[in-house]
Amino acid sequence: MKEKFHFIRIKASRMNNLAQILFDNGYEVQGSDIKEELFTQKKLEQRGIQILPFSKADISSGTLVRKYTKRSCLSSF
């Protein structure tokens, strides 16, 4: 069973791209962000990646959570 990822601020360009790569490689991916529509969410929506409002209730047990910050990088996984 592949891991499930939840990205906080999934509409941010770095998180958006990483979410798409993981999804395209068969991982279960979802994320949370602001309600405002941003151009970066179009490709997420085309793939069926769920974008939720910010809420701890949307993150199930066993889900790997990734939060976007200016210091985020792939090596922190």
Results as ranks from 00 to 15, higher is better:
G31F: 10
G48T: 00
K11P: 05
Q41S: 15
A19L: 06
K11M: 06
I21M: 06
R47P: 03
Y68C: 04
S75A: 04
S61A: 12
C73K: 08
E28R: 04
F7T: 08
V29L: 01
E36S: 12
Q20S: 06
M1G: 15
R71A: 04
S72G: 07
S61C: 02
K43W: 00
R14Y: 05
N25F: 08
I51H: 11
S61G: 02
I59W: 00
L64C: 07
A57E: 15
Q30K: 11
I49N: 07
R71H: 01
I34V: 14
L52R: 11
C73G: 05
F39V: 14
I21T: 04
S13W: 00
Q50Y: 09
L38H: 09
R47W: 09
S13Y: 05
V65F: 03
F23K: 00
F7Q: 03
K2G: 05
K70F: 07
T69Q: 00
L38W: 01
G26N: 11
L18Y: 06
K11Y: 00
R9C: 14
P53G: 04
Q50H: 10
T63Y: 01
I51T: 04
G26F: 10
A57P: 10
L74W: 08
S76Y: 09
L38Y: 08
Q50W: 07
Q30E: 12
E45R: 13
Q30N: 12
G48P: 07
F54E: 06
R9Y: 13
Q41L: 12
E37M: 02
G48H: 09
A12C: 02
I8R: 01
L64E: 01
F5D: 03
K11N: 00
K4R: 15
M1I: 06
Q20F: 01
F77R: 06
L64I: 15
T40Q: 11
F7G: 01
N17I: 01
L38V: 13
P53A: 05
R66H: 00
K67M: 08
N17V: 04
Q20M: 14
Q46C: 08
E45T: 14
I59F: 11
S60I: 04
R66D: 02
S72Q: 03
A57K: 15
S55F: 01
N17E: 09
E37D: 13
F54G: 10
V65C: 07
Q50N: 12
G62Q: 06
L74N: 09
T63F: 01
S75H: 00
L74A: 01
N17C: 10
L18M: 13
Q50D: 10
